[in-house]
Computed example of a mutant assay.
Amino acid sequence: MMQNRIDQLFAKKQHSVLNVYCTAGFPQLNDTLPVMTALQQYGADIIELGMPFSDPLADGPVIQESSAKALQNGMSLHVLFKQLAGFREKIQLPVILMGYFNPVLTYGVEAFCAKCAEVGVDGIILPDLPMAEFENEYRATFEKYNLHFIFLITPETSEARIRKIDGLSKGFIYAVSSSSTTGKDKDMKDQQAYFERLKELRLKNPVLIGFGIKDKATFEVASAYANGAIIGTAFIKKLENSQDIDIAQTVKTFISDIIQ
């Protein structure tokens, strides 16, 4: 079995890893691949692709609205897998699908995992799938298809639970910078004690910090304590006003402002 692309990435790059979240089927239904292609071209390290869902509990209003728009555009898991067919001919970056368990359960967990493996997805984030349920019922299926399952932790997560997650996780751990939804403005320096605590745990998995990362300054703070960061809401805001012709330019400007 080929080494997972997420592992390949962290084997060669341990610092300032940039994971960018985009909603599949947004701004327009067929923008999924153009956005992904531009992210690869202009310097993202990981693409986190949101699977739109009607009740996205962990997402703030900006990502919720992008999800609602994508659903209105006609996005579904079936459409997404059609869009992703053959995407590996163009895109070499690790790709993670992020969403909620209900659509995956409706699709069929094994069928979903098989389809992910077929098109070339590397990892899955399902924030509402309980850890015990994953471990007891679904872990073997995800591992069978070489899909890394990525858990979220928050400042309230106990050390015992973090270590349990570290043992169950593959790829990286998603460290939420606060317990609120995505997209809230936060002073990253307020989270310093939490970031220090994570760093001192010396976890076996890499750690990426998300929620509140929006520009070069917040990306650099996160990267000082972890292996890198995840940017979602700020990127979705930029895409909101993009038309097909300038998606590439929007992505180029956004990423160059963060990593230059």
Rank of each mutant, 00 (worst) to 15 (best):
L93I: 08
L39P: 06
P103D: 01
M98R: 10
G99H: 06
L77K: 05
I91T: 11
Q83V: 02
P34T: 04
L97W: 02
N73W: 04
D59F: 14
M51E: 00
S66T: 15
Y42V: 11
P52W: 01
G60P: 13
I47S: 05
N73Q: 14
P56Y: 09
N102S: 14
A24E: 02
L97C: 09
L33N: 09
P52D: 04
S67W: 10
G25Y: 02
G86A: 10
D45W: 06
L57M: 13
T32Q: 04
L77I: 03
T23R: 04
D31N: 13
A70T: 12
A68I: 07
E65M: 15
V20T: 14
H15F: 13
P27V: 00
P52H: 03
G50I: 07
A70R: 10
M75I: 02
Y100R: 01
Y21S: 03
L93Y: 11
V20L: 13
H78V: 08
G43D: 08
F26Y: 15
T106Q: 14
A70D: 10
V104S: 04
Q41K: 11
C22M: 15
T37R: 08
L77G: 03
V20F: 12
Q41M: 12
P27H: 00
Q28Y: 02
V35Y: 03
C22F: 13
A11T: 12
L18D: 07
S76L: 05
D31F: 00
Q92A: 14
L39N: 13
Q83H: 11
K13D: 00
Q41G: 10
I96A: 04
A70S: 14
P27M: 07
H78Q: 06
T32V: 01
R88P: 10
L33H: 08
S67G: 14
D59H: 13
L49S: 03
I63P: 12
Q92M: 07
I46P: 08
K90T: 15
I46V: 14
G25M: 06
A24C: 02
Q83T: 03
L93A: 11
P27D: 02
G99N: 02
N102C: 10
V35S: 05
G99S: 03
P94K: 14
T37E: 07
F101E: 08
H15R: 15
M51W: 01
L18A: 11
S66I: 07
V62C: 06
D31Y: 01
S16Q: 15
G86T: 08
L29C: 10
L18K: 09
L71I: 03
F81N: 02
